[in-house]
Amino acid sequence: MEQGTVKWFNAEKGSGFIERENGDDVFVHFSAIQGDGFKSLDEGQAVTFDVEEGQRGPQAANVQKA
């Protein structure tokens, strides 16, 4: 798993970007967020995640709040 920080997340659209510790920013969709309840992330929040190849390039998967 990688570690990173939420660069921004739009709760209305359900997507945003995570700033990786090593590498380019990666797209995140709300469906990749693990946990119960409303799936959203806050700017500056620390997260851990896997990276998968999506239709438009790398994207975060199995996102967990650190």
Rank of each mutant, 00 (worst) to 15 (best):
M1H: 13
M1D: 08
M1V: 12
M1E: 10
M1I: 11
M1F: 11
E2G: 07
E2F: 15
E2H: 15
E2T: 09
E2C: 15
E2V: 11
E2R: 07
E2L: 14
Q3T: 13
Q3P: 06
Q3M: 13
Q3E: 10
Q3W: 15
G4Y: 00
G4I: 03
G4P: 00
G4F: 00
T5Y: 14
T5K: 12
T5F: 13
T5L: 10
T5I: 14
T5P: 00
T5R: 13
T5C: 13
V6S: 02
V6W: 00
K7T: 06
K7C: 08
K7G: 03
K7E: 04
K7Y: 02
F9M: 01
F9E: 03
N10F: 03
N10A: 06
N10M: 02
N10Y: 03
A11L: 09
A11H: 13
A11D: 07
A11W: 11
A11E: 07
A11Q: 12
A11N: 11
A11P: 13
E12F: 12
E12R: 13
K13Y: 08
K13M: 10
G14H: 00
G14T: 03
G14W: 00
S15I: 15
S15E: 12
S15H: 15
S15F: 15
S15P: 03
S15G: 07
S15C: 15
S15V: 15
G16Y: 02
G16I: 01
G16S: 00
G16C: 05
G16V: 02
G16K: 00
F17Y: 08
F17A: 04
F17K: 03
F17M: 10
F17W: 10
I18W: 01
I18H: 01
I18P: 02
I18D: 01
I18L: 09
I18M: 02
I18A: 01
E19I: 14
E19K: 15
E19F: 11
E19S: 14
E19L: 13
R20V: 08
R20S: 06
R20H: 05
R20L: 06
E21I: 11
E21S: 11
E21M: 11
E21T: 12
E21A: 13
E21W: 11
N22T: 10
N22L: 08
N22I: 10
N22W: 10
N22Y: 11
N22Q: 11
G23H: 07
G23I: 01
G23L: 06
G23R: 07
G23V: 02
D24V: 13
D24M: 11
D24R: 14
D24P: 15
D24N: 12
D25Q: 11
V26G: 00
V26S: 02
V26W: 01
V26L: 12
V26H: 02
V26P: 01
V26A: 02
V26M: 05
V26Q: 02
V26Y: 01
F27T: 03
F27A: 05
F27M: 02
F27V: 04
F27R: 02
V28I: 08
V28T: 04
V28K: 01
V28N: 01
V28A: 00
V28E: 02
H29T: 03
H29Y: 04
H29W: 03
H29V: 02
H29P: 03
H29G: 04
H29I: 05
F30K: 05
F30E: 04
S31E: 06
S31A: 06
S31N: 06
S31Y: 04
S31F: 03
S31W: 06
A32K: 06
A32M: 05
A32R: 00
A32Y: 03
I33P: 01
I33T: 04
Q34I: 14
Q34G: 08
G35R: 00
G35C: 10
G35H: 08
G35F: 08
G35Y: 07
D36Q: 12
D36P: 12
D36S: 12
D36W: 10
D36K: 11
D36F: 11
D36C: 14
G37A: 05
G37P: 06
G37M: 06
G37C: 09
G37T: 06
G37H: 06
F38T: 07
F38Y: 11
F38V: 08
F38L: 08
K39N: 06
K39V: 08
K39D: 05
K39A: 06
S40Y: 13
S40T: 15
S40E: 06
S40I: 08
L41A: 01
L41H: 01
L41M: 05
L41F: 05
L41W: 04
D42S: 15
D42I: 15
D42Y: 15
E43Y: 13
E43C: 15
G44R: 05
G44V: 01
G44M: 03
G44C: 10
Q45C: 09
Q45P: 03
Q45W: 10
A46I: 13
A46W: 14
A46N: 10
A46R: 14
A46H: 13
A46P: 10
V47H: 00
V47L: 02
V47I: 05
V47S: 01
T48D: 04
T48N: 08
T48H: 08
T48L: 12
T48F: 13
T48C: 12
T48K: 08
F49V: 00
F49C: 05
F49E: 02
F49T: 02
F49R: 00
D50Y: 15
D50Q: 14
D50A: 10
D50S: 13
V51R: 03
V51P: 00
V51G: 01
V51H: 02
V51K: 03
V51L: 12
V51I: 15
E52H: 11
E52G: 07
E52L: 13
E52M: 14
E53G: 07
E53D: 12
E53F: 13
E53L: 13
E53Y: 14
E53C: 15
E53S: 10
E53P: 11
G54M: 06
G54I: 05
G54T: 13
Q55H: 13
Q55F: 13
Q55P: 15
Q55A: 14
Q55W: 13
R56G: 10
R56A: 09
R56F: 15
G57I: 05
G57A: 05
G57H: 06
P58F: 09
Q59T: 09
Q59R: 09
Q59A: 07
Q59K: 08
Q59G: 03
Q59N: 05
Q59F: 13
A60E: 02
A60R: 00
A60F: 01
A60G: 03
A61E: 07
A61T: 13
A61F: 12
A61P: 01
A61Q: 10
A61K: 12
A61N: 08
N62F: 06
N62K: 07
N62Q: 03
N62E: 03
N62T: 03
N62S: 03
N62G: 03
N62C: 08
V63H: 01
V63D: 04
V63A: 02
V63L: 04
V63S: 01
Q64P: 02
Q64I: 12
Q64R: 13
K65R: 09
K65E: 08
K65N: 10
K65A: 12
K65F: 11
K65W: 09
K65I: 14
A66I: 15
A66Q: 13
A66V: 15
A66L: 15
